[in-house]
Nucleic acid binder design. Structure first.
Length: 852
RNA sequence: GCAGGCGUGGCGGAACGGUAUACGCAGCGGACUUAAAAUCCGCAGGGAGCAAUCCCGUAGGGGUUCAAGUCCCCUCGCCUGCACCA
């Protein structure tokens, strides 16, 4: 063979066309073949592909191509999570319609994806903002209504009082609206909810079966569902509470620590509690305090990190067990209305938030749980609450009990007294799906003054978005539209109004994995039999930032669809892989302004600004982001080095679950390797007769074996290392004029093994070696078991755990012989200093440890 | 604040509880070249020593074990999520 330069651009686009022309990656249901559904989380069409996308789709592509070579019928689809807030922001900034902006972005990004050479079945492309997609979820919603899985209730939103609009959490910056700068307040709106809590226990049980998921994600989901056993009971007001007839005689609270009741020193209710509202009506001080608490966003992180403040309502409640004792009732900003009853009792000694609050307002701190092994007299709580196990004291009938025993006893006593009952509670709240925005799926509901809430009749679906909307005025453009919401009531025919809220965009991403199975279906979201063939997804891949919400919603949605008869299983994703982020160094000029890597030039080992020559400060390595300008445009990489080099670098440098630092030298290294590979195959002389054929063949087959295992376990960086080892060995073998047939076998194995990772160059070289059929259709190689075993092993010999010698011994040597061999080593003798061996531990074929 | 994760040479990283640093990047030395790039060969955790060799090393501290990067406890640092970003 003759060497000529490797022409990346020409080669890559040629093979991309070849695969597309032959429809290599288009699939249909084929019951004779085992299916494999590989799925990457679909992108939001933000404008251009970023490196996180490139990493994600490279990973899923390796899986899809590898499984394909293994003989599976592989579904590997792609689509667009196309509804969302950024399209509306762009509309406001550039006066482009969200639809136009979105579809333009899709066109650009699809083109960019094609440059990556992905093994995608593009005939199944799905776009969620298209009516032929979202019409089906409108139908699902109507089914959920019928199945009692959807309902309306009041809930809080972030309200910008200047723009008169609802803000997303990300639009709230330091408690203020991002555009207006006005202080954000919590405001109540009537909204639609899906009853995810109906499946709380089922979702919890389900996580235990998800053995193909990372342990950490399962734990996060379990914690998010947050099942807790506790006590819900009623405090009786002491004195004046009863005077306000609207408040009633009792205050109901929930606690997970009924064992600490004797340590209670106050009661606190949420600012959003009905009692707080009742008191606000009559007391300006309380009203002002509640308003102060509400002048803060709705996000839990903000509420929980805010300084704890409280207000004494003047109300008091009687302690249920201590005669004559009463507790003051506060309104406290750290009590969440969404959890339990929106009211708690505070036990400062054993809860950090309660302790912070008690220290601030000079309330009693009464320890009632003493850590095991400590005397009550010695035990005190200062600024750190004790939340661990121990024995109860100071607690009357609970004294001496352990925490769990005391919990059970306290619950039993309260139940006996008729004041309350033990209760299982979940942290999980129902899923609020209403959004006061334009660029989303319209909720198919009509509000009629006479008939109330009326579902849109199914034959009137889809309810499509109005196109002639304006973003110049504040508020929801769909609500502001002059005519769209006016409609006749389907029941009584009188004038009525459409619901103007749209669905949360998590709605679309909760079922797209099923739409891919039957993307052209006009009648329904998907045919049951097609989903039965392809689903559930065998390998789902995406960012860990979706570990809780998206994945939990999709798991719920699958159960809800099952309840409505659409499918017959519970879990949408059998296996999950969460990838790390792509990071890059950051750069600043002397004025402290961020600089793009592309605007820099390297002079010696320092960076300067390419245009001005000004010195540049190199900052820390952070997640690529537009705001820090530490991004590298994938397209520039694809155009300079090609898809294979980008893919190889992404796979080789870090394990996929960890962060990947993008570096210029890294992509250069990948590029160099491709050229080296090119030379290896193109210069190979397949007529040689020398070399250590036996060793070479063992290396080839060991690589097949090891690499197959690595791919199964997502150890792609190790796979790349093994490929490099094999090609290094083949280079040496080739240089030694090694046996031609063995060299050919080695090169072909190498190409087949690397094909899922760097498919273009592998295909090119495969053809250069004389093959007439596509490498992409070649089977995965199998290792010859007889070549995997070695006759000898190198064992380390330790004396007292420290390595003193290594010896090469026959494999599976008898223990006594191994001991003898170990003791005869000079280094071992020396380290033993003439002392006798007390014990010798032989780990067969691995290590020998002599204890003296 | 709560929850989850991560931490190994100059750098990215290897390492069923069993020979720490595979593979690569950067570096150094050499070959080729008028020269450079590219390419090829070699060296390479830190310290001491002419050397054989020895000591120290997996964020820090403690523990379990014949043996700990790996298991347990504590501390520190960084990252992710927190329900209207996707």
């Amino acid at each position: 063979m003759t060497e000529h330069r490797y022409n990346v651009k020409e080669t890559e686009s040629r093979w991309q066309s070849a695969w597309a022309d032959k429809k290599v990656f288009e699939v249909t249901e084929d019951p004779s073949k085992k299916k494999f559904y590989a799925l990457a989380m679909f992108p939001y069409p933000s404008g251009r592909l970023h490196m996180g996308h490139v990493r994600n789709y490279t990973l899923s592509d390796v899986v899809a191509r590898y499984k394909r070579a293994m003989g599976f019928n592989v579904l590997n689809p792609m689509g667009w999570d196309a509804f969302g807030l950024p399209a509306e922001n762009a509309a406001m900034e550039n006066q482009t319609h969200p639809s136009k902006w979105t579809y333009q972005n899709i066109a650009v990004m699809k083109n960019q994806m094609k440059m990556m050479g992905l093994a995608i079945d593009w005939s199944r492309e799905v776009t969620t903002c298209a009516a032929d997609y979202y019409r089906h979820e409108q139908k699902f919603f109507l089914d959920f209504l019928k199945s009692d899985l959807a309902y309306q209730k009041e809930a809080f939103v972030n309200w910008d009082p200047v723009e008169n609009t609802v803000l997303a959490n990300e639009q709230v910056v330091d408690g203020r609206g991002w555009r207006s700068g006005a202080l954000v307040e919590r405001r109540k709106l009537k909204q639609w909810f899906l009853k995810i809590t109906e499946f709380a226990d089922d979702l919890l049980d389900g996580t235990k079966q998800l053995t193909g998921w990372p342990e950490k994600v399962r734990i996060m989901q379990e914690n998010w569902i947050g099942k807790s056993q506790g006590l819900q009971f009623r405090f009786e007001y002491d004195g004046q509470g009863a005077q306000n007839s609207n408040i009633g005689n009792t205050l109901e609270i929930y606690t997970t620590r009924p064992d600490t009741l004797f340590g209670a020193s106050f009661v606190a209710i949420s600012p959003d509690h009905p009692v707080a509202a009742e008191l606000s009506a009559k007391d300006k001080g309380i009203a002002d305090f509640v308003a102060q608490c509400r002048a803060i966003g709705t996000s839990e992180a903000i509420v929980e990190t805010a300084e704890k403040i409280g207000f004494d309502t003047g109300l008091k409640v009687k302690h249920p067990f201590i005669k004559g004792a009463s507790l003051r009732v506060f309104i406290a900003n750290f009590v969440l209305m969404d959890y339990g009853t929106g009211a708690i009792f505070g036990c400062p000694a054993h809860d950090q938030r309660d302790l912070d609050f008690a220290r601030k307002y000079n309330l009693n701190v009464i320890p009632v749980v003493i850590p095991d092994g400590q005397e009550p007299k010695e035990f005190a709580v200062d600024m750190e609450a004790y939340t661990g196990p121990g024995r109860l004291y100071n607690s009357d009938f609970l004294n001496g009990m352990g925490v769990d025993e005391a919990k059970a006893e306290a619950i039993a006593r309260i139940e006996k007294a008729g004041m309350g009952e033990g209760k299982t509670l979940y942290r999980l709240r129902d899923w609020g799906v209403s959004r006061q925005r334009y660029w989303g799926c319209p909720i198919p509901i009509i509000h009629c003054d006479a008939c109330g809430v009326v579902p849109v009749p199914e034959d009137q679906l889809p309810v499509t978005l109005p196109e002639d909307v304006h973003f110049s005025q504040p508020g929801n453009p769909i609500y502001n539209h002059p005519t769209w919401k006016n409609v006749d009531c389907p029941t009584c025919g009188k004038e009525a109004q459409r619901e103007t809220d749209t669905f949360d965009t998590f709605f679309e991403s909760s079922w797209y994995q099923f739409r891919y199975c039957d993307p052209q279906n006009k009648d329904r979201g998907f045919a049951k039999d097609k989903v039965a063939y392809w689903a559930p997804v065998d390998q789902y891949i995406g960012g860990v930032e979706h570990a809780v919400m998206h994945l939990l919603y999709a798991r719920f949605f699958t159960r809800a669809l099952k309840k409505c008869g659409y499918l017959d299983f519970d879990e949408p994703f059998t296996a999950l892989f969460t990838q790390g982020m792509v990071t890059h160094e950051t750069y600043k000029d002397s004025a402290g302004k961020w600089l793009y890597p592309a605007d820099l030039k390297k002079v010696g080992d320092k960076f300067v600004h390419a245009a001005t020559g000004e010195a540049v400060t190199v900052g820390r390595i952070e997640k690529m982001s537009k705001s820090k300008k530490n991004t590298v445009d994938p397209v520039e990489i694809l155009e300079t080095y090609g898809a294979d080099a980008a893919r190889l670098f992404i796979l080789s440098d870090s394990p996929p679950e960890r962060d990947l630092e993008w570096t210029e030298s890294g992509i250069e290294g990948a590029w160099k390797y491709l050229n080296r590979l090119w030379r290896l195959v193109m210069n190979a002389d397949f007529n040689g007769t020398g070399g250590d054929t036996d060793a070479m063949r063992r290396k080839i087959h060991k690589t097949i074996h090891d690499m197959t295992q690595d791919l199964e376990k997502f150890h792609f960086n190790k796979s790349v290392a093994r490929l490099r080892e094999l090609s290094n060995a083949l280079e040496d073998f080739s240089a030694a004029k090694g046996d031609g047939a063995t060299l050919k076998e080695g090169c072909e194995v190498l190409l087949r093994l690397m094909s899922p990772m760097i498919p273009h160059i592998a295909e090119e070289l495969w053809q250069a070696m004389g093959h007439k059929t596509l490498l992409v259709d070649a089977k995965w190689p199998e290792a010859d078991a007889s070549l995997l075993a070695n006759d000898t092993v190198t064992m380390g010999i330790q004396v007292n755990g420290k390595l003193r010698a290594t010896v090469t011994l026959p494999k599976d040597m008898a223990q006594a012989d191994a001991e003898k061999a170990a003791l005869s080593e000079a280094g071992v003798q020396k380290a033993m200093e003439g002392k006798p061996a007390r014990k010798i531990i032989v780990v067969p074929n691995r290590i020998i440890n002599v204890v003296v």
